[in-house]
């Protein structure tokens, strides 16, 4: 084994190295899941409480009090599909953003590709999402929501879009957080704004102004939710929304990894 230590120069994604350290990637993810679900029932309970609680509230508000037209999708399914996508994004981003600071002790003492840290935060959020997704399926059965079977691929596609976007935003924010410690206070606000810019409680198509629709489509979570719901709406999705969302998810990924890789070498000096 030979390694060459040099001042950082140029840019690479460092995928080869991440692959070398894949076991560490696994162990970080495994540790966080294990710790979280140590009290198994409570762990699952906490993972599900938030989306289900929100579903009940939103269903009460927007299908009983102020009616929102959701077409053939029943409102609880409509909103739960949005909520689990949104939660995957927001918990990935918020955990990833904090992750580098939390691991300061390790970063100061040992070398490994730092990107594993926000990466494993995203995987932990994916695990929580899976729990939510199972419950989502159960609710679909309870509500007898018809599924357009040829469009089932929309679910994994939506998940992948969210993961790409969340990983990009998460790595970017985590690196920014190392450098500017007070940046974390803005993340909660930023996520809240993004929540309302996501079609969780309303359908994007209900917006009259098309320019506003295009702007909101930049939010990649909207593309994922669009895909999720299309599996119930006979496979019909607004393709513009989806394409814009995919493009911006990849853009986020590039920006995030680029900024992270550019700054990571000096994390140990400042964290």
């Amino acid at each position: 084994m030979q390694s060459i230590i040099k001042p950082p120069a140029g840019f690479s994604f460092g995928l080869k190295e991440v692959w070398q350290y894949r076991e560490l990637f696994y162990f970080f993810t495994w540790r966080d899941i294990k710790v979280k679900y140590k009290q198994a029932y409570l762990g699952v309970f906490w993972a599900l409480l938030q989306p289900l609680g929100m579903m009940v509230i939103f269903t009460f508000l927007f299908s009983k009090t102020w009616k929102i037209d959701t077409g053939i999708i029943q409102y609880p399914i409509f909103v739960l599909a949005g909520l689990i996508c949104w939660n995957l994004f927001s918990s990935s981003v918020s955990h990833a953003a904090e992750s580098m600071i939390q691991h300061a002790g390790i970063i100061n003492k040992i070398y490994f590709p730092r990107i594993i840290i926000p990466g494993s935060s995203v995987l932990v959020a994916l695990f929580d999402f899976m729990m939510g997704f199972i419950v989502f399926i159960i609710f679909c059965l309870i509500y007898k929501q018809p599924v357009h079977w040829p469009s089932v691929w929309c679910f994994p596609a939506g998940i992948i879009i969210v993961l790409i976007a969340a990983f990009g935003a998460g790595t970017f924010l985590s690196a920014l957080n190392v450098k500017y410690r007070d940046f974390r206070y803005t993340i909660g606000f930023f996520l809240q704004v993004m929540f309302f810019a996501s079609q969780v409680i309303y359908p994007l198509q209900s917006i009259q102004q098309s320019w506003l629709k295009y702007i909101l489509a930049i939010n990649p979570v909207n593309a994922a939710i669009e895909l999720f719901r299309s599996a119930f709406a006979g496979g019909y999705a607004d393709t513009t929304t989806v394409y814009i969302g995919i493009a911006s998810a990849f853009l986020l990924l590039l920006i995030g990894i680029y900024y992270f890789r550019k700054t990571e070498a000096y994390f140990a000096d400042i964290v």
Binding site: S3, K6, I110
Partner: peptide
């Protein structure tokens, strides 16, 4: 710290075998 790759050097290089 440089040899253990925790922090990068500003100049020069080091080859570590092992």
């Amino acid at each position: 710290k440089i040899i253990s790759r925790i922090t990068p050097p500003t100049a020069g290089s080091a080859i570590i075998r092992g």
